[in-house]
């Protein structure tokens, strides 16, 4: 799909579930993998050690949230309006020009996370990279649809069961 287009339809698929957290990810019509699975497939074997460590850090944070603390609100990087990024909770010296790995998401509550796709960010703002901008714009569109559906049913984002029904039935 070309960057800058927002035409695909699909659903939000449950990818991981534990007592602490349910992770959903968009799966567009005709695709075999969810957006999160695509991120893992595309970035799981990056050759540069700095980016490999970024990837490991992202996976480790998600593991921590799933096994332990859930999607606590303080843990997310703010990327503009309601879109967040998974933080990189490791220290490392960064070489110029290599970039930083980003994975974008929507935090619904401490118990529900919707993970989209991401990539290597070599620009100052994601809006300056058409691929990253497209990823964030698609997530923003999904977030808006959930918001409208929740408002219609007067569902509280903190009400796990109510929001789960919206997320699992919505067309994105």
């Amino acid at each position: 799909m070309r960057p800058g287009t927002l035409c695909c339809m699909g659903k939000l698929e449950l990818v991981i579930e534990s007592d602490n957290l349910s992770i959903y990810s968009p799966k567009f019509d005709g695709e075999v993998q969810t957006e999160f699975e695509k991120f893992m497939s595309d970035n799981g074997s990056l050759p540069h050690p700095q980016l490999k460590k970024d990837f490991d850090a992202i996976i480790a944070v998600l593991r921590k949230m799933v096994d332990d603390c859930g999607a606590r609100e303080n843990l997310f990087r703010l990327e503009g309006r309601n879109i967040k990024a998974i933080p990189l909770c490791v220290e490392q010296k960064r070489s110029k020009g290599v970039g930083t790995l980003r994975l974008y998401c929507i935090r619904i509550s401490e118990k529900i996370l919707i993970i989209g796709n991401g990539g290597i960010k070599k620009v100052r703002k994601y809006e300056d990279d058409p691929v990253l901008k497209d990823i964030v714009d698609r997530l923003r569109s999904i977030e808006h649809k959930i918001y409208v559906a929740a408002r219609k049913t007067k569902a509280d984002y903190e009400d796990y069961q109510e929001v789960k029904i919206i997320i699992e039935t919505i067309t994105i």
Binding site: V15, M40, G44, I59, V61, R63, K64, R72, L75, C89
Partner: peptide, 29 residues
Amino acid sequence: KKNPLFDKCVATVAPEVMEEVSLNVDIAN
């Protein structure tokens, strides 16, 4: 629900990275 691809990625994370992340998250929280 588990995800095999995620579990495979977790298995390749270096133990020291897992520890560092866990500690940093605990401190932040």
